[in-house]
Amino acid sequence: MARAPLLQVEDLKLSYRTERGILHAVDGVDLTLNRGEALVLLGESGCGKSSLAKALLRLLPRNVDTFSGRVAFDGTDTMTYSEERFRREVRWVRVSMVMQAAMNALNPVVKVGEQVAEPLRVHQGWSSERAFARAEEVFGRVGIAGDFLRRYPFELSGGMRQRAVLAMALVTEPDLVILDEPTSALDVLTQASIMNVLKRIKQEHGTSFILITHDVGTSSEIADRVALMYAGQIVEQSDAGSFFGDPAHPYAKLLMSSVPRLHQREKPIHIGGEPPSMFEPPSGCRFADRCPSRFARCDEMPPPLELPGDRRVRCWLFEGGRR
């Protein structure tokens, strides 16, 4: 590829100091995201996917122990940036984010429009009229009538508020929007219409997305590529077709068969056991304890192995090509 990918993450590590010890939330993650692509970061709660998202935007809590690796936008490593430079050049300029439950975190006493316009005023120093006009335009794009700008958050339904926080992330026209569980608190129909909005924005504006979710069904609504996370690591990274049609990693296989499907007669199965502690993760494969295909080699940590078709899997079964 001639151009560097939009986002390249190499060996990203993030751990926190807590009262119980060092928590390794993100433990050596490699990710690549091309322009206009949507990447889904799939994983159960506590697997570190939200930490990873916050690490990309450097929205870190104060008890960070280590934060290392490489996070490059358009080929430029931003890890060396000062906080001030990162805020000025990256956050909300190139990458913005919709936090988990952000729709419930809107300021209840400020009109929605002003909150949506705020990133423009803060990050780009626009006048409030200009920013407001722009907010109105973005509101149209996410499917809210312009007059909702002048309302307060409590006057909006859940779906409307979710669209408003989406507008807040889009208003600065970033290249990449990170969405953390954007639909998990919403009803099926609202979920579907929000996903429709995302698909349309992706198509019409070429915005890239990283969608973080635990919901396999929703993830398939937008994914070009899927990264499956387990215990702080990415265990499989594949294009959407391969992942949903033919998952490679044993965890991915089990996960896919645990999803209840509307049009499927077989009963979903459940994955026994629990994820390992993130305080003292096992030295070998982290899924080994729950894995049906476990063998001796699994006590060693498997590296990410390349599969045909730009897929990467962290499992010894795939050593030397497809088994």
């Binding site: 949507a38 129909l189 219409s193 398939s220 077709g241 992942f243 949903f244 509307l262 499927q264």
Partner: peptide, 19 residues
């Protein structure tokens, strides 16, 4: 309601749902 539910499938991303 049924039409809005996505069973995991890569084709879901290719078209808009009727809502």
């Amino acid at each position: 309601l049924l039409a809005a539910i996505a069973d995991p499938d890569a084709d879901n991303a290719k078209h808009q749902r009727d809502v």
